[in-house]
Simulated assay, not measured.
Amino acid sequence: MKITIVAGARPNFMKIAPIIHEIERQQKLGATISYRLIHTGQHYDKNLSDTFFKELAIPAPHKNLEVKSGTQAEQTGAIMVGFEKELEAHPCDLVLVVGDVTSTMACTIVAKKAHIKVTHVEAGIRSGDLKMPEEINRIVTDSITDYFFTTSEKATNYLHSIGNTEKNTFFVGNVMIDTLLSNLNRLKQPAFWEEKGLQEKNYYVLTLHRPSNVDALEGFSKLLSLIVQKANKLPIIFPVHPRTQKILKEANLVFENLHYVSPQGYLNFIYLVKQAKAILTDSGGITEEASVLNVPCITFRDSTERPETCVLGTNILVGNNTHLIEEAFNKLQSGNWQQAKPIPKWDGKASQRIVEILLKLHEG
């Protein structure tokens, strides 16, 4: 069985790593399975990309399409052209895509037009917010995928509601949590830890990158000012996403306890998350990691495609609502935050389930 695995951006790297490790484990046990790893280059910071591959023991990609930056349409088109050539040169039995980035959707379309079956890892999740590019990617990908691997029963039930069955839809758990759990004993304290005067459970980690939060300068400034005010002078560590970096430079937003740092490698970033007083974010994946680590999480979004992080985890949605933001900080500072409960099948074995199912499907 020949599988082409696609990774395009940083969130994908954490998801493909355990799948690749499990394929290699099955190979050693005698399974007839092989893979070819394609990096589309959608995330094009070579140093950071290389750091993730090294830290997560991901082998060098067999091919990097080197798509780099551009508009949504430019990136999508470039990925499709490059991936079509890749599949023509290296045919496979199955294309495996993960997550919800542009590469996920673009490579799914190319594979299906080449009459190659597609499996989508992290399928079926929905935020209901069509302003998010990721939501469009999820809908398109899942509309033509052959095999679905889900992180929750809710995602599975949604896929069943639109016509899929138990024959092609499998609730396996969360591969990103596989990566988290397997690396907890390898986390590294960032080099700036002492310089910034950080102490365990006495600082915040902030990540913001969604257009609704950062593209309008007035709204972005207001949100940052409120966060800084409610942090009560505790340090806030803000690894800055490239799209946010540009806006911050133009706005010259400076606060005494807000520390801008460069994007972090996986082991440094999870160290920061694990030791933080709370996570302040508009990212989906970080809410999953915070929930498993039982770290309070305030999400500046009105909806989430990962509701289990709110129901069973440590996540609260506040959007840009000043009252909800203040209420969340007050709850946090009172020590009355919701405690994480076990989330079904987020146990570090999702990749094992996925590869075992793929082998069975191939056999017949």
Rank of each mutant, 00 (worst) to 15 (best):
V205T: 10
S143N: 09
N320W: 00
A123E: 00
I162V: 15
P11V: 13
F149T: 00
F52V: 05
D146R: 01
P18Q: 04
R138S: 04
K112P: 09
K15T: 07
L181S: 04
V205H: 07
Q339E: 14
I144T: 11
K246D: 04
T104E: 03
G173I: 00
N213Y: 00
S152T: 15
I20H: 03
H115K: 14
N164Q: 15
M132D: 00
I116K: 10
E86P: 08
D215C: 02
Q339V: 09
L37V: 12
Q339D: 12
V228C: 15
R210G: 01
A290P: 04
P133E: 04
L96E: 06
K131N: 12
A60N: 14
V254D: 03
A251N: 08
A106Y: 02
T151Y: 00
S291A: 08
T32I: 07
S152Q: 10
V97S: 08
I227G: 09
C92L: 11
Q75H: 06
A60G: 02
V175T: 15
E195C: 02
L206M: 13
N268K: 13
L96N: 09
S103V: 10
K167F: 03
G285K: 12
E84L: 08
G265W: 05
N174L: 01
G77Y: 06
N157A: 02
Q275D: 12
S225G: 13
F53Q: 03
E55D: 14
G163K: 14
T179H: 02
A89V: 02
K201C: 06
Y158C: 00
K54D: 13
T309H: 01
T108Y: 08
I177N: 03
Y266T: 10
A155K: 02
E66M: 12
A191L: 14
I125F: 00
I247D: 05
H209E: 11
G313Y: 02
K349P: 01
G163C: 06
V318S: 10
K196F: 13
F238S: 14
G265A: 04
C310L: 15
R306W: 14
K188E: 15
V228R: 07
E194R: 06
C92K: 09
G313V: 09
H115Y: 14
A231H: 06
T156H: 00
C310R: 03
L272W: 12
L96W: 08
H90R: 03
T244H: 07
W346Y: 11
H21F: 05
K277D: 09
F255S: 11
D302E: 12
L317H: 07
G319C: 10
T151C: 04
R186W: 05
I3P: 05
K28D: 04
Y266H: 12
T104H: 01
G348A: 11
R10D: 09
T51E: 12
Y266P: 12
G265T: 06
T179I: 05
L358R: 08
V175Y: 00
K154W: 01
F238M: 15
V6Q: 09
L94I: 12
Y271T: 09
A73I: 14
